[in-house]
Amino acid sequence: MFQNAISKNPFSTIGRLVILGIQEMGKVALFLTSGFFKIFSRPVNMSRLLEQIYFIGAKSVFVICLTGAFTGMVLGLQGYYVLVKYGSSGSLGSAVTISLIREMGPVLTAIMITARAGSAMSAEIGVMRISEQIDALKTMGINPLRFLFSPRLAAGLISFPILTSIFDVVGILGGFLTGSLLLGVSPGIYFSKVESSVVMSDINGGFIKSIAFAAVVITICCYQGYYTHRRNEFGAKGVGLSTTSAVVQSCVLILIADYVLTSILL
C-alpha cells in the first residue's frame, strides 16, 4: 500500500526516473573510462585492433562515400538556389565546405557508422552475453571489457576522424558536381572559395566532434549489448531491444553532443 501511494505521487515518479537516469549515466561513464584505460594495458593485441579498424573503418568507406557524395550534391543544389537570389552564387564553395566540415560531415558519418557497425556490435555482444560467452571469458581470466570493448573503442577513435574526412572531401566534390558542372558556377571560383573560407579551427572542430561521437557511439552500442541480460525481455528479444536502443540512443546523443560541442567550439 505504501508503495502504491508512492507510485501515485507524480513527484516521486519523476524523482525515481531522474535518479535512475543519473545512475545509468554514471554506469555508462564508468564503462567508458574502464574500457578506455584498458586500451593501453599490456600486452596490446594488435590483431584484434586491426580487425576492428577493418570492420568499423575500412568496411564503412563505401557507404560513407555514397552518403558524402549525395549530401554534397544536395548542398550544392540547395545552396545555389538560395545564393543566386542574393547574387552571390560564387560563394557556393564556402557554403558547402563550411557546412560539411563543421556539421554535416561529423554528424552524418557518426550516424551512418551507428547504423552500419554500431548495431552489429550491439547485437554481437548481446548474443555473446545471452549464450554465456562473456561468462566464459571471465572464467578464463580474460577481462571481457578489455577483450570486447577496448579494441572497438580504440578502432572507433581511429576510424571516425578518418571516415569524417573522407566524407568531407567526397561531399565537397559532390557540391562541385551539382554547383559547377550542372548549374554553371565556375570551377575555379568554387575551389578558390573552398580554399579561402576554411580555417584550421573549422577542421579541428570537426575532428573533435568526430572523436567525441566515436566515444558516444561505440560506448552506447557496446554498453547496450553488454548489459542485455539486465532487460526485462530475455533471449533473442532482449538482444533485439538492445540493438534498437543502441541505435536510437546513439543517434539522439550524437545530436545532443553536436549541439553542446558546437556551442562550446564556436
Partner: peptide, 20 residues
Amino acid sequence: KKLLKSKLSFMFQGTALFDS
C-alpha cells in the same frame, strides 16, 4: 586472486563456445 583464477577452469552446461 588472479593467480588462483588462472588455476581454475569451468565447463558450461551449454558449452559457451565462441560461436564466431
